[in-house]
Structure formats: structure tokens, C-alpha cells
Design a protein around this nucleic acid. Structure first.
Lengths: 211, 211
DNA sequence: ACTATTAGACCAACCAGTTGGTACAGTGAG
DNA sequence: CTCACTGTACCAACTGGTTGGTCTAATAGT
């Protein structure tokens, strides 16, 4: 257990993130790690298996380093959601708008080519949407009743992925920041409008930070 | 002038749309068209040049078949925007949620690999954003004043691309439909809130269809 | 001595791109 | 009319290099 398998997965993760799965060759990974081919195929029965391992590795890392710290905090559900969006933006910014979202990349690259990857990626996106839904649901008391929170959750995923795409193609975080600001504005509006409806007044000023 | 160049571009466009640019081989295109390799390189000096030709072909087709009919109509700017979103959704639905947006695909695949493609794609996304901005600007009389329409335009692009991504990975139009419904809801809210602000009343019920 | 691991030679298929050439339609000169 | 020439369109065979994957032999740890 020298962690060589982990080493391969991490190198592959970096390469796949930038070059895509199909365009990353086993040799690329071998070169980056110094591991020899026979050894690689001792740890993975195929490049495809490595691909799945990369996906699992990435989602676990994401949960550990990004999700858990926020979800474990004692903030309100709504603020957790906001902080999550901010964290994701910061992550893209710090990467120099390179790579983008590994799942988004792989989804567009592989959904029409490989049903296995597509299904796994679909689950992951569904998981993200479900997470947002739970956070919205938890904030439901302060949100409008006449809006489908499942839809809003899906919309957050889309706005996020779209924002990441724009940051990547512009090589600039601004477009993503703009998208997230509008997305948050929409979510805040969901609260304000509700507050107005509930109180019958619209003079009550904002709860918490708005925009 | 047998249109053989066009024939190559169209076949390549289909293949690149599904398989991605890097993963589409010249031989794939040759096989699909029946054209021989020597002849291919008579029309294109490289696969890269073909890639750019595919992008130009696709954007022209998009303008001709999707944009122009809507923009040329005598509808209001706001309704044009709404119809554009509906058309884009229908397009994805009719394709069986295969392929997705060629530009989105290429943006994620190539932005970190090929600066030339990245720049061209960036221009195209900027063009889309500018178009949405113009339509919003034209509707400005009935929209809120305290919101940056450039940001909203960027947000529309992101919501759209994110929605297309979700449809592709779910192989189902529903997630995209949900996203666009929420996006439209946001845009309509931009109008309603404005109406409220202008009139000083919030009792005035909705203008047009909401949600 | 046995098992887990490592090394790297090797393979057929595939990759983008090149080569040297043919077929042919048009054209200008004599 | 005809012959030499020109540019466009086309093609089969090939190049050097890369692909994912296999095989066998050597080595290290117990």
C-alpha cells in the first residue's frame, strides 16, 4: 500500500481536468507519474476503470474539502447555500479559470459516447440538485410558497455550471461572478417577495445581507 | 464547385457535435463522406482549419435558422427573448438531448488546449450575451432600473448553457425546461417589481403570463 | 520458496498529415 | 482544328508517431 494507485488517480485527475478524458492518454499519465505501463495495468484493468476512479476521487475530495465544512457549520440553510456558491466561485478564480468543473467537462464530453459515465455523472448532478433542494427546503419558511423548489435547485446547478463555462472560455472570473450575483439576487428575491406576502407590507427591510 | 467542401464541413459538424473535436478523426469524416484523404487535404490545410470552418458554419446556420426569424418578427423585444429561449429548448428536445450546444461542448473541450479556438468561442459567447443585452435594453422601459442588464444577459447565457448540459447528461429535456422556466420567472419578476415600484402599489396583479 | 509488485518490450490499430501521381476541363498559340 | 499547357479535383499508398492494452521476465518482501 504505497499509495501508488492514489498517485495515478491524482495525476490522471489533473490531466483529465485540463485535456479531457479521451484526449488524455495512458502514456501522459505514465509520464507524469514516472510509473511504468505494466504497473499501471496492474492497478487498473483499463483506462475506463481509471476514469471512474477519477470521478469518485474528485467527488470525495469535493465533499471533504468544500461541502462538509460548510454543511457542518451552524449557519442558516440559506446562508450555507450562499457560501457554497461563493466558495465555488473562489475555487474557479484560484485555478486561474483553468479546468472548470471536472463533472461538467466530462458530462459534455462523454454523455453521448459512454452510457456508463453518463449515468454516473447524472447521479452526481442529481445529487447536487438534491443538496440545493434540501437547503432551499430548509429555508422554506422564509421562501415563497408558489415556486417549485426542485426547479429552483436545478436552476442553481445550471447557473453554476454555465457560469463556470463562461469563466473558462473568457479566462476571467468576472462572467461567473456576474452570473452568481444574479442567481443570488433571484434567490434573495424569493425571500423578499415572500416576506412581503406574509407581512402584507413591503416596508420591512432586508433580513441579512442582500446582494 | 460540387459543394464538396460544404459536404465535409457538414459531416464534420455532426461528428464533432457528438464526439468532440479531438476525438473525431479525419478518417471518421472521410468514412462518413466517402471522400479520400488526399482530397480532404486539398480543401483543408489541416484538421484545425476544418475545426474553425465547422464553428463558422454552425454559427451561420444558427443565425439563419434560429435568430433571424425571431429577430425579424414584429414582436416586442421581451417576447423575442422569451421565444428565443423556447426555440432553443425545442431544438434540444428535438435532437433527443444529444449533442447539446456545439459551442458549449467545444468551449469546455478546447478552452484550455487551444488559444485560437478559445478566442473564437469567447467572441461567440460574448455575441450571445450582447444580443440578450440588446433585447433587455430594448425592454428597459418596463424593467427594473437598479439591475445591471449586462449581468442579466450573461446570466441568461449561463442558465441556457447549464440547462443544455443538464438535458444532455440526463438525456431528458425536463431539467432544461425547469431551468428555463425559472430563468423566465426571474426575467418576468424584473418587470413585475418594476411595475410595482413605478406604481407604488403591489396590488396590481400580474401583467402577462407568470411562471 | 512463494507472492505481490515492477519493468519495459511488444502489438495491432489508429492518428494527422504527405507523397507522387492521375483525370480532366479549359485555354491560348499556331 | 489541334496541340501544349495550366489549374482544379481527386486518389492510393505511405510516413512517423501515438493509441490502449498484453506479455513475460525480473525483483522485492515475507
Amino acid at each position: 500500500m504505497s499509495g501508488k494507485r492514489e498517485q495515478i488517480i491524482e495525476a490522471a485527475s489533473d490531466l483529465v481536468h485540463i485535456k479531457g478524458f479521451n484526449h488524455t492518454s495512458v502514456d501522459d499519465i505514465l509520464q507524469k507519474t514516472g510509473i511504468k505501463k505494466g504497473n499501471f495495468y496492474f492497478y487498473f484493468k483499463s483506462k475506463e476503470e481509471l476514469g471512474f476512479a477519477v470521478v469518485e476521487h474528485y467527488i470525495e475530495q469535493f465533499r471533504r474539502e468544500c461541502l462538509s465544512p460548510i454543511l457542518a457549520s451552524d449557519d442558516t440553510a440559506f446562508n450555507k447555500l450562499m457560501r457554497l456558491l461563493d466558495t465555488l466561485e473562489m475555487e474557479q478564480s484560484e485555478s486561474g479559470c483553468c479546468g472548470g468543473c471536472l463533472f461538467g467537462n466530462m458530462a459534455l464530453e462523454l454523455s453521448d459516447l459512454h452510457e456508463g459515465f453518463r449515468k454516473r455523472l447524472q447521479e452526481i448532478f442529481q445529487g447536487m440538485s438534491d443538496l440545493f433542494y434540501r437547503l432551499l427546503e430548509e429555508s422554506a419558511g422564509e421562501l415563497q410558497k408558489d415556486v417549485d423548489l426542485r426547479e429552483v435547485a436545478q436552476f442553481i446547478v445550471a447557473g453554476l455550471e454555465g457560469g463556470i463555462m463562461l469563466a473558462k472560455v473568457h479566462k476571467n472570473i468576472t462572467p461567473m461572478r456576474q452570473c452568481l450575483r444574479q442567481l443570488k439576487r433571484y434567490l434573495v428575491l424569493l425571500r423578499l417577495k415572500s416576506a412581503m406576502n406574509n407581512s402584507g407590507l413591503n416596508t420591512r427591510s432586508e433580513r441579512g445581507r442582500v446582494q
